[in-house]
Write a protein that binds this DNA or RNA. Sequence first.
DNA 1: AAGCTTCGCAACCGCTCTACA
DNA 2: CTGTAGAGCGGTTGCGAAGCT
Length: 258
Amino acid sequence: MEKSKTRSGVRKGAWTYEEDKLLKSCIIKYGEGKWHLVPQRAGLNRCRKSCRLRWLNYLNPTINKESLSEDEVDMMLRLHKLLGNRWSLIAGRLPGRAANYVKNYWHTHLQKKMVSRKLEENKEKEKLKETVTPHEIIKPQPLTFSANSPWLNRKHSNFVTPIVAVSTKDGTVAKYSDTENTMFPINGTDGNSTMSALWWKNLLNVSNDKIASCSLLQEDDSILEFPNVNFLTEVPNVNDSNWDSNLYEFDSILDILN
DNA sequence: AAGCTTCGCAACCGCTCTACA
DNA sequence: CTGTAGAGCGGTTGCGAAGCT
């Protein structure tokens, strides 16, 4: 980097050993943060951004400067698939690795790999398209339940209200339990009665665009998307049912990936 | 050996987010 | 609600080293 100055007279370019020393001792003395005060405190003719970057990417003693292990590269690939170019988040999951380092490593080593792999996979897909005929989609049919079925047998009740929950694309959970459309009457007492399959039909009538794809299990190259999912930004309400919670702990997502 | 090209990485820039008055 | 300043992030740039001809 060329040793130059900005219009405001602040030094730019590569850091010298003396500058590093000054910055390091300043951070040790005052701690991280308040970066706007750092140049003054350290006696450096650098902007606060430059100081922060130098510390975070190079001087910080927690930084691991050794080359990435296979495990770390694997983790990086998985995290990038999940998070995209969120380098700081990815770096946060790789102990001792700075965001800038992760970003540079991705651009210099992994991006090409990913591009060539994608091309290969596209070729494979094209081949498969030529040889495999499309499957006929068979919709599941309503079952006919016996009124004697133990799980339906409720004392003093002629109705059973199944609660069906469908995960939707917009992150909400549609619950099909309204009594008017989903209750199925248990007819008579002759033992041969069947139940109305109205609730099941209603379930099938849920439009396709409301049913979310099972993207977590996809293994293609598209970036996994979690609509309306906040990462560690809110604490789920403990009173919510399991279905109501669309907030995921980051670790849970990692578990899914592993 | 010299010139040219490519690669890796440190650093910069501009934008967004957040806190606060 | 709005403006401002600080902090942080991701994209991009440009230098120096390494490799190639």
